[in-house]
Write a protein that binds this DNA or RNA. Structure first.
Ligand SMILES: [Zn+2]
Ligand SMILES: [Zn+2]
Ligand SMILES: [Zn+2]
Ligand SMILES: [Zn+2]
Lengths: 318, 318
DNA sequence: CTCTGTTCATGGAGTTCA
DNA sequence: TGAACTCCATGAACAGAG
């Protein structure tokens, strides 16, 4: 019975031995214990457990071919059963529920990175402190005597802008931002637990960097402006074309790149290899930022008269 | 001794006496205390410790054969247990961890990081260029008119040291080191393939950092000196107690940390999670180094007369 | 050689959406 | 409805310890 080395064996091994035993279409493998195509596979799963009795409009002797298989579901299902397809190979509803539950668990574990209770609390502390002091910081810029042309709805002549009030405004909001950063750190127990000397050192090193990163969140890619409440700062506001501050555009470029990368980092939390790369890239950008910060601090120190306006920043940069 | 020529012999000499007691497939030996095939072996290991209760869609009386063993895991597992397979022969997670730790050690000792052919060539290029220009760089410091007190075997009074010759020497060795770094990059085909403009930018940004890192390799932890051939530089040599350069000790501290971390990085090639952390830490330290580099460049620029001594460094820092 | 675990291509389930 | 996916159990082949 097993092997009759006749022409049959040859014939059965024709070039295309894999045809659907139901409709004759190209089979994609065994489905529910029969060699079938994708169509009959799906049809069987959907149809076999429906109680609604299918009835053949003819005598139940329809031809089931690839072209005609849609015409009579009753005969198609009958041929599926005759071909040996078994309904018990379809996952039961309980097994299915179990499977979906497992997948949901997997998804839940992967997406929000598994955090311990302490870690979640830490995140809450950070978010709370950020919201209290940094999140709405920019909307309060308007309280520091901003020149009229900074208002979004200002309609004056854009050319003549007095320099001194703008500089004063910048000095004030810089001082304000650093104050907010200090308040922010005061709400972080772990930071408070450091020796006061270390706290000061860390603030000196990073306060302006934090301000720059925070300011990035207000940058609008479309209009290329920083939008802070009712105020709009163009890049030209920050960088007059005087010698020594022309590199401000570089700063913004790097800062923009930084903001974009942060965005990607927050959004892309699924793929592990990219995670690693992003973290490295972020740290690399911190090097750039530190560098820019130094240049900034140097300029702050050397703009005549500005130091007197910002004793706090003066202290930070010392 | 083996064969008692009774009817048993006939039975024992069947064509295939080694069949899986679970499914009847060809057995490959005893697995978990029962004669089974590879399939049932893997199935038992995977399945027996899963808490998710398997349930037979039928009465639990499925036939478990080679062809049908996949259809009902519940009955298959039941038959495994009935056949005497024991779950406690599966290695516990602790035993597994131990085994893997040992293997990791073996791997690390035998194959010091598997590199592709191209990677090995790249490493050779890097090592060659480093050896030619950076490796023996420090031993040549002696050629740049070092003050007598720098020699290791110098026995003079340690207090009175003229400043100008020392400063000149520092200027010369700094220029020399930067020249070596440039030679180093000229021997790197990948670097040469960059546009000249980019090469200059990268050198401006990193040349002094490379010098600092390279210099760390001469730092002796015991004596807290930099040993360069016959010369010995104490930290005080580099950082006179004049205002503005007192932070030199910070520099050395960070550089020392950096050197230590690099050392750990090179030595610790076994554990994967630590690798990741080390890379991040290194990049973080690069931020610090970049910061120090800026401060250094600033000071270089502002030491009166020193700029004239080091036109090359002047160029780098511009 | 025997009996552990590990790896990874593969098949056959369900799922999606035009 | 079904072509084109995801997902995971499977098991042959392999590696390593004893
Ligand atoms: Zn079909
Ligand atoms: Zn019909
Ligand atoms: Zn078996
Ligand atoms: Zn069963």
């Amino acid at each position: 019975m097993t092997a009759t080395p006749t022409s049959e064996a040859m014939a059965s091994e024709e070039d295309e031995p894999r045809n659907c035993v139901v409709c004759g279409d190209r089979a994609t493998g065994y489905h529910f214990h029969a060699l079938t195509c994708e169509g009959c596979k799906g049809f069987f799963r959907r149809t076999v457990n429906k109680k609604t009795g299918l009835t053949c409009p003819f005598a139940g002797s329809c031809n089931v071919s690839k072209a005609q298989r849609r015409h009579c579901p009753a005969c198609r299902l009958q041929k599926c059963l005759n071909a040996g397809m078994k309904k018990d190979m379809i996952l039961s509803s309980e097994a299915l529920a179990l499977r979906r539950a497992k997948q949901a668990q997997r998804r839940a574990q992967q997406a929000p990175t598994q955090l311990s209770k302490e870690q979640k609390e830490l995140v809450q502390i950070l978010l709370g402190a950020h919201n209290r002091h940094l999140g709405t910081m920019f909307e309060q810029f308007v309280q520091f005597r901003p020149p009229a042309h900074l208002f979004i709805h200002h309609q004056g002549l854009p050319t003549l802008v007095p320099v001194l009030p703008l500089l004063t405004h910048f000095a004030d909001i810089n001082t304000f931002m650093v104050q907010q950063v200090i308040k922010f750190t005061k709400d972080l127990p772990l930071f408070r637990s450091l020796p006061m000397e270390d706290q000061i050192s860390l603030l000196k090193g990073a306060a302006l960097e934090i301000c720059q990163i925070a300011l990035n969140t207000t940058f609008c890619l479309q209009t290329q402006n920083f939008l802070c409440g009712p105020l709009r700062y163009t890049i030209e506001d920050g960088a007059r074309d005087r010698p020594g501050i022309t590199r401000r555009e570089e700063i913004d470029q790097v800062q923009e790149e930084m903001a974009l990368t942060l965005h990607s980092y927050i959004k892309g939390q699924q793929p592990r290899p990219r995670d690693r790369f992003l973290y490295a890239k972020l740290l690399g950008l911190l090097a750039e930022l530190r560098s820019l910060n130094n240049a900034y601090g140097y300029q702050i120190q050397h703009i005549r008269g500005l130091s007197a306006m910002m004793p706090l920043l003066q202290e930070i940069c010392s």
